[in-house]
Design a protein around this nucleic acid. Structure first.
Lengths: 154, 154
DNA sequence: TCTGAAAAGTCTCCTTC
DNA sequence: GAAGGAGACTTTTCAGA
């Protein structure tokens, strides 16, 4: 992972469908060099995949909420994580420090669908005594694009 | 936005670099039809862009945190939102219901960089009396892929 | 590991349905 | 709107350094 790789990663996060020539022009490499480095980054797992960034309203899920969940004991976690894995409305699930066990990012078609997910699917799980939801009114920024910091010795 | 469009959106969120032939085979359309629908979806803004999904550790920003921020009065919001816009470490900024004003998703190279962002850049803003941070220990799921619910009359 | 050029494959545009 | 075909472009592969 040298400076070329970081430049490539930065560029393709913002230009996911750019051709190799365009990437090469942006970072200062030939078409073949870009091809080889992309293949290497995908093989290494540094590039997890490629995606179209879709407008949530257009996709039919304009309601966004963050849900903090308390899991009482470790033996109740597998069932919870299975739900997280299988439920596409749960975009993110993070194990967190602080008063709660997990923080979820959830998208739904409307408030009714959100209530259904919370009341019928999450709170009915064993070992989930409490949860706390925060509903998003609007998003000033909502991007999957990571910052690529300059490494220590640069 | 008919059923073909929804299928296309679903497919290209998981296969952002798929060719038009591949998309067409997945949803049941010809290459040209896929081409036209993609252009239309981009024109309409339903497709906001295309991106490579990058492993945060490989990109050099393994530390993830969620920060709740209180903004005292509306006149202090523009400066805060300008910081949000210009700071690449702030991936998301949502205006939320509940006790706090905004919820941020933040990535940093290490805890020191996170502290720097919180203590030197956010808490020094006027009208920001309090904030509360939750650090992520691990992520069971972290995806930008939206669910595409079936519409009411289907 | 990079460059450069040829081969294979893909997108784009145009015509027709 | 959707399908099919000719031309331009891109990706892939393979020498050579």
């Amino acid at each position: 992972m040298d400076d070329f790789d970081r430049k490539i990663i930065q560029f393709i996060q913002a230009n996911g469908r750019a051709g190799y020539a365009e990437i090469g022009a942006a970072v200062g490499l030939s078409v073949s060099a870009v091809n080889e480095r992309l293949k290497k980054l995908e093989r290494q797992g540094a590039i997890r995949g490629w995606s179209a960034l879709v407008d949530p309203a257009a996709a039919g899920c304009p309601v966004l909420a963050f849900v903090e969940v308390l899991i009482e004991r470790p033996e109740h976690e597998p069932a919870f994580l299975a739900l997280v894995r299988d439920e596409p409305a749960i975009l993110e699930c993070h194990h967190v420090t602080g008063d709660w066990s997990y923080l979820l990012k959830v998208r739904a078609a409307d408030i009714v669908a959100l209530e259904d997910l919370l009341a019928r699917r999450i709170k009915t799980l064993p070992g989930v005594p409490r949860s706390r939801s925060v509903v998003v009114l609007s998003s000033a920024k909502d991007s999957p694009v990571l910052p690529v910091p300059v490494p220590p010795g640069a």
